[in-house]
Design a binder for these strands. Structure first.
Lengths: 209, 209
DNA sequence: GACAAATTCAAACAGATGTTCTAAACACAT
DNA sequence: ATGTGTTTAGAACATCTGTTTGAATTTGTC
């Protein structure tokens, strides 16, 4: 019917949207296929399973998101710890607030968190592991060599928590503070705040140890 | 079969567990009824709908959680802002980490965030609104009268983000840092860190404004 | 154009799911 | 004990779900 050989791609795209909106179990193969303009049997033919399609969506979405906002922050080796932290936070926030094509990837992760499958651990190891190592190195530099690892980890979680909050609690935030925007300018402002806030927190934690 | 007139309560209890584990759509009425030792028709009789049961569970869970860890922090009027912040963070973390009866309420909220229904906004307004006002007052006191409202809100979100992170990202955290515990002693340590970290961040934000 | 492989299609299948129906069991006031 | 309104039981219903099947169509290659 449509141009050939691209049904697989259309399925991936449509499935991402629908899975993100409804979660894995609540999503019906028929809705995906209708939105993709494909036959009901297409999913089983191309991905063998509904679950196979789900994993494929998760994987391709993670790759697309990291490609669009790479963890390599484009900073020279002379960049200070403050700059590195700011760049990391900024990049993470933009990835979260993205409304473009792989935007549904964030919602998929939310569903995974609420109801984890094997895919979650794989994703963390293969895709997000390197970014985490990066943030750990940044924090370690800021907090000093002598600080115990537990302090590094606490600061790391404080930073991640502040950023991911805007992803996790978006529906609640938009209900409580409807005037809060998620436009690029808002994100920039937010990134600055989180960086400043965290830098102060990190220095406080460094003093204590 | 069982003692009478308490089927409704057993359904509520069982439904909370199953809904939290599987989400709304993935949960089957039959599984709830089996776990509750009730007939399949019991849900429709007592709650008219599967959805009606879901709303009832959400409401009773929120009430139970707030009853167990009341937002009234048990502090006298002479308490300092630092003490109030610590008490708030501590209470929120314990509510999140609770493994007791209303523990599934947190997971239900996660599902609501990933896939919001009307129930979410009602819950925020009627149940969590007062706690938010409380935290806002604490931050306002710490940040000073002259700081703009946007600064207060940013700090508020930074604090909430750090706390809720341990709720939202629990599966990921336990996979990345398996050694991290969620026992009372761990929670106490965490509460102290978040309080100290945030106090430093708040004072930094106050200086800037 | 002809042939083999890959892809798409409509239809059907088997199982599960939310809900409804009717009769039976029960609680409780008289 | 009797009668009445409430609650429970099992079976059945209608619908939806993921998947399979086998024929039809299209694709790439000679």
């Amino acid at each position: 019917m449509r141009s050939t050989h691209e049904t697989e791609g259309r399925l991936l795209e449509a499935a991402g949207e629908v899975f993100a909106a409804r979660g894995f179990r609540a999503t019906t193969v028929r809705e995906i296929c209708q939105q993709a303009g494909a036959n009901v049997a297409a999913v089983n033919y191309h991905f063998s399973d509904k679950e196979g399609l789900y994993f494929a969506v998760l994987k391709s979405g993670a790759e697309a998101a990291l490609k669009k906002y790479p963890p390599t922050l484009g900073l020279g080796p002379t960049a200070t710890g403050e700059e590195r932290l700011h760049a990391f936070v900024r990049s993470l926030l933009f990835r979260i607030a993205d409304k473009g094509r792989p935007s549904w990837h964030g919602k998929l992760i939310s569903h995974e968190m609420a109801e984890p499958t094997k895919a979650l651990t794989v994703l963390i190891d293969k895709v997000y592991g390197s970014a985490l190592k990066q943030l750990e190195a940044i924090v370690r530099k800021l907090v000093g060599r002598r600080a115990p690892i537990t302090v590094v980890r606490q600061c790391l979680q404080s930073i991640l928590g502040q950023c991911l909050y805007f992803h996790y609690a978006r529906p609640a935030i938009q209900h409580i503070h409807p005037e809060q925007g998620f436009e690029p300018a808002d994100i920039e402002r937010l990134a600055k705040h989180i960086t400043q806030f965290s830098l102060a927190g990190i220095r406080q934690a460094a003093k204590k140890s």
